[in-house]
């Protein structure tokens, strides 16, 4: 990994094809830079994320996981926000059982035009992770 990247935490982002992917793509288009160790896996809906995937990411070495959630814009229905929240809550409990700091999992609703919000979120998360894990 390059010299510059030593200053970046490894963050796995779960984004959604219709809602948060366009925002993350647009962040690139607008050259809104964020750490290059932020990697995205695209899925249809944020309420389809399995807690086991998140725990696996920590196990393999990711510092943080960020869920770029559909929020109220979800094309599959209004229950997405609540269900994604439940997944985060359940995963937080599992993380506590495994002595993983629950704040290493963050979620925010990222709509299709929320490029600046996404960049702000992952930059802030990167700073938090560097401070708590790599200080």
């Amino acid at each position: 990994m390059g010299e510059l990247n030593k200053k970046s935490a490894k963050i796995l982002v779960f984004s959604t094809e219709k809602i948060s992917d366009p925002a993350i793509d647009m962040a690139g288009l607008l050259k809104l830079h964020y750490p290059p160790t932020v990697y995205t896996i695209s899925i249809p809906c944020s309420s389809g994320i399995k807690p086991s995937w998140i725990l696996y990411a920590y196990e393999k070495g990711f510092d943080g996981v960020f869920i770029a959630a559909d929020g109220s814009d979800c094309i599959y229905g209004e229950t997405c926000t609540e269900k994604t929240g439940n997944i985060v809550g359940k995963t937080h409990n599992l993380m506590k059982e495994k002595n993983i700091d629950p704040s290493r999992l963050r979620m925010a609703a990222i709509c299709s035009v929320c490029s600046e919000s996404f960049v702000k979120q992952v930059r802030g998360f990167n700073e938090y992770l560097l401070k708590t894990l790599h200080a």
């Binding site: 390059g2 010299e3 510059l4 990247n5 993350i24 793509d25 647009m26 962040a27 690139g28 288009l29 050259k31 809104l32 830079h33 964020y34 290059p36 995205t40």
Partner: peptide
């Protein structure tokens, strides 16, 4: 969008 443009400030 998710590599060359997003990290045009950091080629490595």
């Amino acid at each position: 969008e998710q590599a060359s443009w997003a990290h045009s400030d950091n080629k490595i």
